[in-house]
Amino acid sequence: MNRRDGDTCSSTPDDSLAREERRLGWTLVAPALGVVLLVAIAPLAWTVWESFHHHDLRMPWLGRSFVGLANYRELLGTPRFWASLAHTAFFAVASVSLELILGLVLALAMQRASRGRALIRATVLVPWALPTVVAALLWRFLFQSDAGVVNAVLIAAGVLDQPVVWLAGTVTAWVPVILADVWKTTPFVALLLLAGLQGIDPTLHESAAIDGAGRWRVLTRITLPLLRPAILVALVFRTLDAIRVFDLIYVLTGGGPGTATEPVALYTFSALMQNLRFGYGAALSVTIFAVAFLLAVIYVRLLGADDGRGGSTT
């Protein structure tokens, strides 16, 4: 009860008050914690438990036996898993970096716009507001080989002399996939960055201009460093989204040709929902979760470190 560091005369009533406050706090938070436990932690724990079992709905005669890490061993020995992981990484890096660059340009442009700001921002958000499946269908129509607009335009412009079958090529199938994602989520990144831009004190830019710094110098020395927290937030959201990409690719290419554009989420879906391999599918789900979680932790560390330094440096 009596702590050594609480030896000052006024400490005892304060301490009990604080304890009471804490207890009240926990009581108030308890329902929320219960919900989190029920809807987030419990299913996750169940999935992890399931991943240690052989559980195949199509083979009930094999039972549901505990197999330890066998599902994970199978996973690591399956080339299709590694390929899907590589596809996911490629998709994440390619789409997120394009989205950041374009989003930054868009955000800078939006900040400069003096008239009709609200209207511009609302318009920019339209692709983001569209359901992903609808957007994906739209892009599939654009990239259809025989009647698609993209081929027609490229042929008219003289870039192509005959239509490209985009969705049937190992490399070309990525073009509509990445473009569709960039088209759809750049507005989101732009708005996040715009919020960051508006938090920068304009006097910094003014004094830099007075000191004779050019536009490029202002951008690289003042705007970008101060925008770092906003960029990191955008990165966290977008990377975690990209790692779980499913609907866009499901509609556009179905993971094909072969499995050339299949991300981990689609592979998991096929194991779980098509092949009814619940144990193996659970192992896949846990693996995706682990990867996403790891990245989130890394990002949060980066964000935290940035905040700490942001306070101490001039």
């Binding site: 199509r58 083979m59 299709r80 049937a168 090529g169 190992t170 094909g256 040709p257 072969g258 499995t259 050339a260 096929s270 098509q274 092949n275 391999r277």
Partner: peptide
């Protein structure tokens, strides 16, 4: 066979990759 959907999926992937010229 009750395994048909999974067997078929593997066959589909092989057929499609070969037809697309990957293998």
């Amino acid at each position: 066979t009750p395994l048909w959907s999974e067997l078929s999926e593997r066959l589909q992937i092989a057929l499609h990759s070969a037809l697309a010229g990957q293998v």
